[in-house]
């Protein structure tokens, strides 16, 4: 069974009286432990698709099943729970809380998962260790380099042991060296059994993936597998 199953998904915005089809009849199945890259020019709908998969957005029509359950009939707390436990988000701009330390940033999803203080610290430290930041626990984001910040963000995405990592242009704000470090971490996560979904417009980033989806004008125009 597919982990994620999108059937005939439409997302239609009304901009100034004009209908804009951000997603125009998407059919897509994503299996467990896939390594997928969503590509396409800006405006092609890749971010919308990403938000849809991440349960941040709901389709105008179509059926989205997450682990066999219909997403569009879920209420706010069910959606929040999926985002909290099943999906880890990694953003292009890191989106860390500037006033919180690395450890505290990583602990936030655990707070929403209602995990005890003591366990929280342990889990957060473990997650930060796994991305090689064991010595940066008490640094605030502005005391960290871009690559380190993104690694904190990955630790935050990982800390609740989600099955899916959704990474939206994870290397977009990084130099090539930090970028490749981040990609190595994502590759390792894939090897450990996680499902990785990348949104990118860079070919060399997409090369890490085993399957590439190309979008254009809200439609899937290519779905190809490639050898790692």
């Amino acid at each position: 069974m597919a982990l994620i199953s999108l059937k005939n998904i439409f997302k239609i915005y009304n901009v100034g009286g004009e209908e804009v089809r951000a997603l125009d009849g998407i059919d897509l199945d994503i299996l467990e432990n896939e390594y997928l890259a969503i590509m396409g020019p800006s405006g092609s709908g890749k971010s919308t698709l990403m938000n849809m998969i991440g349960c941040l957005d709901t389709p105008t029509s179509g059926i989205y099943e997450f682990e066999g359950e219909m997403v569009q009939v879920m209420d706010d707390s069910q959606l929040a729970s999926i985002r909290n436990r099943k999906i880890g988000f990694v953003f292009q701009t890191f989106n860390l809380l500037p006033k919180a330390t690395a450890q505290h940033n990583v602990e936030i999803p655990l707070v929403y998962a209602n995990i005890k203080n003591k366990d929280r610290a342990k889990m957060a430290t473990d997650a930060l260790e796994s991305v090689g930041l064991a010595d940066r626990l008490h640094h605030k984001p502005n005391e960290l380099s871009g690559g380190q910040r993104q690694r904190v963000a990955i630790a935050r995405a990982l800390v609740n042991k989600p099955s899916i990592i959704l990474a939206d242009e994870p290397t977009g704000n990084l130099d090539s060296k930090s970028g490749s470090e981040i990609m190595t971490i994502l590759d390792d996560l894939h090897k450990n059994g996680n499902t990785i979904i990348l949104v990118t417009h860079e070919d060399d980033v997409a090369q890490h993936a085993h399957r590439i989806i190309r979008l254009f004008d809200g439609k899937v125009i290519e779905d190809s597998k490639q050898a790692p």
Binding site: G54, A80, N84, R85, Y112
Partner: peptide, 12 residues
């Protein structure tokens, strides 16, 4: 936005 993305409900 970030808090919601990482699992905060409206109530939280």
């Amino acid at each position: 936005g970030v808090r919601k993305a990482i699992g905060a409900t409206k109530g939280m």
